[in-house]
């Protein structure tokens, strides 16, 4: 009773995928890399970051692969030059707003690296040097640390809280440069409906939400000595 697959061409190869498969899923299944930032397997596609753009023959411009379903006969180019240039510029802009370079283990640093950017360069070296976010650390929860200056408004934490746990403890607040996240409408995790599952820290691509113990380890001069 299997439904007929959808046949498309991706980077010159013929693929057949189940109906409803997104271009990103098709690419991953075929072992092709497309950069992402607001995407998480555990969450519904969001289509916000514009990093996962690909070229589709006949389309007016690059399309977001995470939200675009494969259609029969599509010809897709994952290494599409314009798409990648846009992705690189977006990541470069994101990095330019951070007061410090993202830690090497973060998804943001790894995506930047893979797009040919230097994630360690810091805001001063950015092409669009200017105002960066003021450090704002919230240490009130015993396990979770919030570094608001590292938030890139990808919405992953808010969606993980809603779609994985169902606690609805986090909200997106502010607009433009001031966009950020708030736990319990700013009252902090402890005063919110947070159940301390840690899904937000797990999905965060920048460590804007991280674990306090890891945060403290990283801050210690010899982090190995700090592990008591």
């Amino acid at each position: 009773m299997s439904t007929p697959g959808v046949k498309l061409t991706m980077d010159g190869a013929e693929l057949e995928v189940a109906p409803g498969t997104t271009l990103l899923e098709a690419a991953r299944a075929a072992g092709l890399w497309i950069p992402t930032l607001c995407f998480d397997d555990r969450l519904a596609p969001f289509g916000a970051c514009r990093i996962c753009l690909v070229g589709v023959e006949g389309a007016k411009g690059p399309v977001a692969s995470c939200t675009t379903e494969a259609r029969a006969g599509m010809v897709v180019e994952t290494q599409h030059a314009l798409s990648r240039r846009i992705a690189r510029n977006v990541v470069e802009l994101v990095l330019s707003e951070l007061p410090v370079p993202p830690a090497p283990h973060t998804e943001l640093a790894q995506v930047a690296q893979r797009l040919g950017l230097d994630p360690t360069a810091g805001p001063a070296a950015a092409r669009w040097a200017g105002v960066t976010h003021e450090p704002q650390l919230d240490h009130r929860h015993p396990y979770l640390a919030l570094q608001h200056e590292l938030c890139i408004s990808c919405g992953r934490c808010v969606r993980a809280c809603d779609e994985v746990q169902g606690a609805f403890a986090l909200t997106a607040v502010g607009r433009g440069f001031h966009a950020n996240i708030a736990a319990g409408l700013g009252a902090g995790f402890a005063e919110s409906s947070c159940v301390s599952c840690g899904a937000c820290a797990d999905t965060c691509p920048t460590d804007a939400i991280s674990e306090r113990l890891l945060f403290d380890l990283a801050a210690a001069p010899d982090h190995r000595g700090a592990a008591r």
Partner: peptide
Amino acid sequence: NKGHTCVKGRF
């Protein structure tokens, strides 16, 4: 758990 855990298992 499909990539999830709770306040006990994780922390």
